[in-house]
Write a protein that binds this DNA or RNA. Structure first.
Lengths: 144, 144
DNA sequence: ATAATATTAGTAACGATTATTATTATGGTT
DNA sequence: AACCATAATAATAATCGTTACTAATATTAT
């Protein structure tokens, strides 16, 4: 987690973004919790400091902070669901450029849930493993 | 992938669901592609056979087929995004009952992307590993 | 056949997110 | 310190995938 103000400013500067009090507040909320709040929950907390802040500002700020690598989005809501007739759990690889989704035929460790069980008090029942990158059509060719 | 008609009927029967021509068509579309189509894409294909089918039927059918284990949903759209001030990639564990999200502190393999690279022509740049289950508050206690 | 129940098509509603716009704040320059 | 170009904001409207509703139709069991 990046808390150094110099570094935070530097990252925003590079893209021409300013460090406003709204952005500071969003970052503060996010950095002072171990939960993984959604946009509305962040909005409610920021409102205690800046009562007239708008939800649009929260979303815009989250997008920018993500862009400069100050936070990570756990994305459950900004795209649409896809369906797979193979109901068995298996990894996928998603092209971040064209959206293509492939199965990943790979001898990846098959005991991930078992391993994870040892590290948490949750009762694990499922998991999801997904890779992102550029598919053969979208990646720079070796001739480039 | 489950293609046996008996097994398909049996799974629906157990929950009191009927195997209608709409449901058969959705399953057929999904089982005859290696892509991972979204609901609208399935809708377009089913419409060629059943012109007056409605998108609501597609969604309802997908939900039921998922419920009885005949398909898997790659869920990008039915919930909302959560944010993490730790921008470094690390696994999470999500409670399917209360929605709580924890970091998973675990010595899981740290070379997943490297391993996956060997099995695909994609240029891999990121990944996402998430476990699902019941958190300590939601799991049945040992006294139950 | 009949009755109970499930399913459908069509449409309206929902809700998270994004876009728009007029106004305000910020940072650099002279 | 005043000025100018640009970025950011609050408030609100629009978007769009998904879900809910409803009256009509189909299916199954008796």
């Amino acid at each position: 987690m990046i808390t150094d103000q110099e570094e935070i400013s530097r990252r925003l500067d590079i893209k021409g973004y300013r460090l406003t009090k709204q952005r500071r507040a969003v970052l503060k909320v996010l950095q002072s919790t171990i939960s993984h709040p959604d946009a509305n929950s962040i909005y409610e907390k920021v409102r205690k400091e800046i009562p007239h802040v708008s939800l649009g500002t929260i979303y815009r700020t989250l997008g920018i902070l993500k862009e400069v690598g100050l936070l990570r989005e756990l994305d459950y809501g900004s795209s649409l669901s896809h369906y797979d007739a193979n109901a068995e759990n298996h990894p996928h690889i998603v092209c971040t450029n064209c959206g293509r989704i492939d199965d990943l035929q790979s001898p990846l460790p098959d005991n991930l849930e078992e391993q994870a069980s040892k590290a948490t008090d949750f009762l694990i029942t499922d998991h999801r493993l997904e890779f992102y990158g550029l598919c053969p059509h979208c990646r720079p060719s070796s001739a480039d």
